[in-house]
Amino acid sequence: MANEAAIINAVARTSLWLQPHRIVLILIALGLVLSAAFFMRWDWLPQYYEMGLIGIWRSLWILAVTCVLGFLLAVPLGLAQATGSFWFAAPAKVFCTVIRGTPLLIQLWLLYYGLGSLFPQYPWIRESWMWPYLRQAWPYGVLALTLSFAGYEGEVMRGAFAGVPKGQLEAARAFGMSRWKTFRRIWLPQAIYRALPTLTGETVLQLKSTPLVATISVIDIFAVSSKVRQDTYLTYEPLLLLALIYMTITGILVFAFSRIEARIPNKIG
């Protein structure tokens, strides 16, 4: 019975959504896509197909690593601003302000070109184990994107930590939890629940920042499309496909986060 009701509900919702004008719009969109598929040049696809997949994989990998590392950095940044003494709060505040006040492109170029041109002057750096990594571009890209994510998310986490009701923490103390246990079991989880809706937006913003690493010669999917454009002298086809790829990834990210959000208890505080 419940199943039938659900099906009827779904049908009703679909018919509500699929109004006549929407059907026309969808047909027009289909027509545009089909004409793009037939009248534009796509013969370069088989040749660059593998390179594109590697590029997508690299973009996703950079996104995942920088989001996780950035979030790990954002927790202490937010905590320092929410509760820390002046000597903890002020540097965290300055860090967030500087990161949020300057373009990511400049941060990236400062790290890659600026620091990268200073390092070779010091022999002890060139002889250290880090040198093989410091000569490549991707560590600078990962570092810049991580710091950027931490700067933006640190501000969010500050609000999230400050938003957890005091009574929750007092109750935890009354149960005899140590400070670390209170933080781990009560404060951090509730702060993350609060920050989760903005986390979706920040992750999508981070995805949209990843193509910047192409400007420091990391071969991500954006760099692959630039290479196709240079090789084939095509303007629109690679860019349109690239936009489609990013939209698909964004859609998947938003869907995944909405599933995660649906799982958390929604009565907090």
Partner: peptide, 16 residues
């Protein structure tokens, strides 16, 4: 669409 595609890609597409 505008909010789902990176600004860099949009700038290139719209400019050309």
């Amino acid at each position: 669409i505008v909010r789902a595609v990176p600004e860099l890609v949009l700038i290139l597409l719209l400019y050309y």
